Amino acid sequence: MLDFDELRELAADVRVFVDIAEDKAEALRAVIAAYDVVLAIFPANEGMGLHVIKGREILDRIAGSRTHVMYSHTAIAVPDLEHAEVLKLLTTPVEQRIAA
């Protein structure tokens, strides 16, 4: 089960990391590369929306079994679902974008 307060704290940490970086795009790429699962969080009608930027396969495996897979995760705050989808597209390796 995801803890929304934890996700907000993780997103705040990522925001600070990116804000202090000289190259903000590279900092964001580094954050996404460093974690197994990266979630975008954004305001939604029912509180908080979630969109998986990276790690859908891991989350699907956990949901489809009764095992507890160990994985690292973080969150990135974005203004809306559209920004989350664009961030996912922009951070997908080029080989995967071409194959799709």
Rank of each mutant, 00 (worst) to 15 (best):
A84V: 07
L28V: 07
E85R: 15
E22N: 14
M48W: 08
I32V: 04
L89F: 08
L7N: 13
V52E: 09
H68S: 10
V37Y: 00
R8A: 12
D13G: 07
V94R: 03
A11K: 06
I58R: 09
E6K: 11
L7D: 06
H73G: 06
E85H: 05
E85A: 09
D13N: 11
A44W: 04
Y71F: 15
N45C: 13
V16A: 14
G49E: 05
F17M: 13
A40P: 10
L59Q: 02
I58P: 07
I58W: 10
R61P: 03
T91D: 04
A77E: 11
D13R: 15
A77G: 14
K24Y: 04
S65L: 02
T67K: 14
I76V: 05
D3E: 15
I58N: 02
E6C: 10
P43R: 12
A33M: 15
H51R: 11
R56I: 10
L10E: 09
V52W: 04
R97E: 05
E85G: 11
A75H: 06
L39I: 00
L7P: 08
R8N: 12
L10R: 14
S65D: 01
A12M: 12
D3G: 15
A21H: 13
D80M: 01
E57T: 12
F4A: 09
D5C: 10
V31G: 01
M48Q: 12
G49T: 02
L87W: 13
Y35R: 01
Y71H: 11
A27E: 02
L87R: 05
E9L: 10
M1T: 14
I62R: 10
D80K: 00
L81D: 01
I98N: 05
D60H: 03
T74W: 01
D5H: 08
K54S: 04
I53E: 08
D13M: 11
A30D: 15
S72E: 05
V86E: 07
I20K: 15
E82P: 13
R8H: 14
D36M: 00
V94D: 07
M48G: 06
L59I: 09
R15D: 06
V69W: 09
L90Y: 07
F4R: 12
V78P: 04
R29G: 11
E9I: 09
T91P: 08
T92D: 02
P43M: 05
A11S: 04
R66H: 10
T91V: 08
V78Y: 07
F42L: 03
A11V: 02
L90P: 10
V52I: 07
E46A: 15
